[in-house]
Write a protein that binds this DNA or RNA. Structure first.
Length: 550
DNA sequence: GTTAGGG
DNA sequence: CCCTAAC
């Protein structure tokens, strides 16, 4: 499970002071992408991984995250690219220091660092210097010295990263750069915080605006000293940039790395995974507590479905195999479900791989309950409907997405047609047949509320909707909510008859709306007076002085 | 199982 | 009307 994918050779570069040919030919600097495997070995990247990071690297080999995503307003005040000797030596010293700290302080579960990825225009000269040092030190000296020399530490730039300016896609890119895997989450705040956690090795991310400066969280517009709060001060970029040369030394170095360094890398890999999981876990809780501390609204926990679907998609994106998905669930009771879900998953993953859009069309969402008895009929219907689609239409110059939409709407329309003639249960995947509330039902509901109070939906249903009514207590609750909305929206302004606005459904007669509002007011009054207790006497029925309905 | 609330 | 959290 190799955690991290590193940058790579997409190009070579040595274009200092514009003398491309001579320097490149004489002193090529080549980067090789390696993967840190679970056991600490450095494994050359596969072709797939090369493709994945390709857009981080320009043709001349520079790391150009910012340019590759067209983000002109990236808030990075990166260090000036000065090529003075002092600066270079500082870099080397810093690199060593980081490694040294990592050694001494034990496992540092550092994450790949985005500032590294974001850092650009690194001086080629510096890299060459580092490489030369590596060559020199390879013969003698400790591993850490060799290792540090090999690894230009981009994370030590005095840069600021302001995630606020990132678009969702850019945040997702940053997420990938930070954690080495895709995410399809589109929640900016989540992404921001997640990335910040990765960059700072801290769960302690304020909910307010912040920027990341030197791997610490810094609140915007606030004194840095008081708000800088990072427990782990160590910067350990997980992206290891190796200089690959054509001389035999390369093999020597790689051997050294995979041997002596395995312990460190192993620690890093395992801790990376552990941290990744724990961060993911504590994210919501942290978010909530922190939001509460700030007095903002509590965030609703993501639903199981949200989590599951995104997990599926992310797993899929990591494995890169979409086609195998249909098989995975065939051995359990959800096999039927997967049949239907597969098409939309495929579509989503294609979007994801291309444009990071992994949302599942809600039209194709399938209930998680056990499949309907006539499910096969339904599936067959979908398939025949798909085949019935005109091939010309399918083969026209529409984009795949358009085709998909068309298919969805076609199926949806067909369902609508069918639902009028076929038994409702059979006709719908998404929802039951819409059964408009009749005036009688509304009256019964209002009456029930007046007797038992709003909230006693089960009781109301038993009494007022007893005889084979399809209305559930949830239905009653929903209807009452709508009635409340309607009453408060219309009653004050409209004393006359009916609603002059377009009647989406049966317009509720104004007297009923008035009654609804009256009950609502009464209820809220009683709540103020008696707390949350119902105004219904226990066991008994409180008869209103005006029953009025039914 | 019921209710509340978001979608 | 659906879905899910919370109870």
């Amino acid at each position: 499970m190799g955690a991290l994918v590193d940058e790579d050779v997409v190009g070579k570069r040595s274009t200092e002071n514009g003398d491309p040919d001579g320097i490149v030919a004489s002193n090529p600097v080549v980067y090789q992408l390696v993967r840190v495997d679970g056991d600490g070995r450095l494994i050359p990247a596969t072709d797939d991984e090369l493709i994945e990071v390709k857009h981080f690297v320009e043709d001349d080999g520079k790391l150009v995250y910012a340019q590759s995503v067209q983000q002109p307003e990236l808030c990075i005040s990166s260090e000036k690219n000065d090529d003075t000797g002092t600066r270079q030596s500082e870099n080397e010293v810093d690199s060593k220091k980081v490694i040294f700290k990592m050694d001494v302080d034990g496992p540092s579960f550092g994450q790949p660092n985005i500032s590294e990825t974001l850092a650009k225009d690194r001086s080629t000269k510096a890299c060459s210097e580092i490489r030369k040092n590596a060559v020199n030190e390879a013969a003698e000296g400790s591993f850490s010295e060799k290792f540090s020399s090999l690894k230009p530490d981009f994370s030590l730039l005095e840069g600021e990263i302001c995630l606020d300016n990132f678009s969702i896609r850019e945040l997702q890119e940053a997420f990938r750069a930070t954690f080495g895997r895709y995410t399809s989450v589109k929640d900016k705040l989540w992404l921001k915080r997640r990335i910040a956690m990765g960059l700072t090795n801290s769960c302690n991310i304020p909910s307010a605006n912040f920027i990341i400066k030197e791997n610490k969280i810094v609140l915007c517009n606030v004194n840095e000293e008081t708000t800088s709060r990072t427990k782990h001060d160590i910067s350990y970029p997980g992206y290891i940039m190796m200089n690959k040369s054509t001389d035999p030394l390369n093999e020597t170095l790689q051997g050294t790395l995979s041997g002596t360094s395995s312990r460190i890398v192993e620690q890093k890999a395992s801790f990376t995974n552990a941290l990744d999981k724990s961060l993911e876990k504590c994210n919501v809780e942290n978010l909530n507590t922190q939001m509460e501390q700030c007095g903002t609204k509590r965030i609703r926990r993501p639903t199981k479905r949200y989590i599951e679907e995104h997990t599926e998609i992310e797993v899929m994106a990591c494995s890169g195999r979409v086609a195998s998905l249909g098989k995975t669930a065939m051995n359990d009771q959800h096999c039927l479900k997967s049949k239907v879900r597969t098409p939309c998953l495929v579509d989503a993953s294609q979007d994801l791989l291309g444009g990071y859009d992994a949302r599942i069309p809600s039209v194709l969402r399938v209930r998680r309950r056990p499949p309907r008895k006539n499910f096969l009929t339904l599936v067959n219907f979908v398939h025949t409907e798909r085949e019935k689609m005109n091939p010309e239409v399918l083969n026209s110059e529409q984009s795949p997405h358009q085709k998909h939409e068309k298919f969805i709407s076609s199926v949806g329309a067909a369902f609508h047609e069918k639902s009028d003639t076929v038994h409702p249960v059979e006709a719908s995947v998404k929802r039951k047949h819409h059964r408009a509330w009749t005036l009688g039902e509304v009256l019964k509901l209002v009456e029930g509320v007046s007797r038992y109070g709003a909230g006693r939906w089960s009781q109301i249903r038993q009494v007022a909707f007893a005889s084979g009514s399809h209305r559930t207590s949830v239905d009653l609750k929903d209807k009452w909510r709508n009635l409340l909305k309607a009453s408060f929206a219309q009653v004050p302004t409209d004393k006359g008859i009916g609603n002059s606005r377009k009647p989406a459904s049966l317009p509720i007669p104004t007297p009923i709306l008035l009654r609804v509002r009256e009950l609502a007011d009464k209820r809220s009054d009683s709540e103020i007076e008696f707390g949350s207790s119902q105004f219904v006497g226990h066991g008994g029925i409180v008869q209103e002085n005006e029953t009025g309905f039914l």
